Amino acid sequence: MDKWIELVKAKMSELNVTQVELGERVGMSQGGIGHWLNKRREPGIKEMNRVLQALGMDFLEVAMVIREPQPSADDEVPLTHKYNPYFRYPVSDWRAPCEARESEATPYAKTREAQRFELTDYHAGGAAFWLRVTGDSMTAPKGLSVPEGMLILVDPAVEAVPGKLVVAQWPDSPEAIFRKLDEEGGQRYLMPLNPTWPKALFTDDCRIIGVVVQATVRF
C-alpha cells in the first residue's frame, strides 16, 4: 500500500495532476482520493488499478511471498531503490534462459526485438529474468505451491543453498527445470513440490541458472 501511494504521488507530481483532477478521471470525489493517499481508507486492487490506469501506468500484480530479504529501515538504501520502487525484467524462455544473456554489452540480444517485460519491486543483484511456469511439478497439495501459469523471477546473483527454489539445467537437456534445492544425508537433490513427481540427484554437471525470488500472477 505504501509503495502504491508513493508511486501515485510521484506520478501526480510529474504530470501536475491534482487530487481533484485525478478524482474526475476515476469517477470519484477529491475527498475519496485523499482518503486513499493519506491511508485513512484502503482501496482494493481494482480501485488501485483504476488510479494507475488514469495516470497512464500499468496494472498491479499480486505477488506471493517468495522473496529474498530486502534492506531493513536501518540499512542505507540506494536512491534508485527508494524513489523508483518498480523495476522491469524480460520474460525469457525455458529453452534458452542462459543463452539470451550471453553478452553483458547486449543483454537478451537473441530475443530483444520481441522481448516482453514485467514489472516488480524486487531489485535484482544480477541479470534477472522471468519465466512462466509450465506443468504441475511445482503444484503442491498444501503449503508452498507455484502452479502452472505463474511468472517466476529468477536472480542469478543469489546464492543457491538448500531450501531455495531454483532453475537448473543439465548439459544434455534442451530445457531448464524449476525445482527446490534440498539436501539429505550430505547429498543434494532437485525436489518437486508435487509429491507425484520424482526427485533428481543434483550432480556436478548440473548448473544452477538462478534462484527464484518471486512468483506473481495477474488478475
Rank of each mutant, 00 (worst) to 15 (best):
M64A: 02
Y122S: 10
R218L: 07
G185N: 12
R207G: 02
R25V: 05
A109S: 10
K110G: 11
L7E: 12
G143D: 12
R112M: 11
Y108T: 01
K164M: 13
L60G: 01
V166H: 10
Y86F: 15
V65Q: 14
M64N: 07
A200C: 00
M48C: 06
S173W: 08
G31P: 02
M138P: 12
Q169M: 11
I177D: 12
F202H: 14
G163F: 10
R112T: 02
Q115W: 03
D2P: 01
C98Q: 11
A109V: 04
L190D: 05
L153F: 08
M150G: 07
V166W: 07
I33F: 01
E148D: 11
L119W: 15
R67K: 07
V161G: 03
A100F: 14
T80I: 09
L37N: 04
D205M: 02
V62E: 04
P198C: 03
P90S: 05
D121M: 02
R112G: 02
R25Q: 06
S13W: 08
I177Q: 12
A200Q: 13
Q187S: 11
Y122C: 10
V65C: 02
A215I: 14
T111M: 15
V17L: 03
K11P: 04
S29T: 15
G23E: 05
P162I: 00
Q53G: 07
T196E: 15
P78Q: 06
F178W: 05
A124H: 10
W4R: 03
S173H: 09
A96M: 12
N49C: 11
D121N: 14
R88A: 06
L79I: 11
V8E: 00
W94G: 12
R132D: 07
V158W: 11
R132H: 01
Q115T: 10
E42C: 00
G44T: 13
L144M: 12
L79D: 13
V91Q: 06
A160H: 11
A73K: 08
I208D: 08
L131D: 06
V8G: 00
D58M: 09
V17S: 05
L55H: 04
D155F: 11
W4E: 03
A128T: 06
K9G: 01
L181A: 14
P69Q: 04
R116Y: 04
Q169T: 05
L15K: 10
A10S: 13
A63N: 03
Q115L: 12
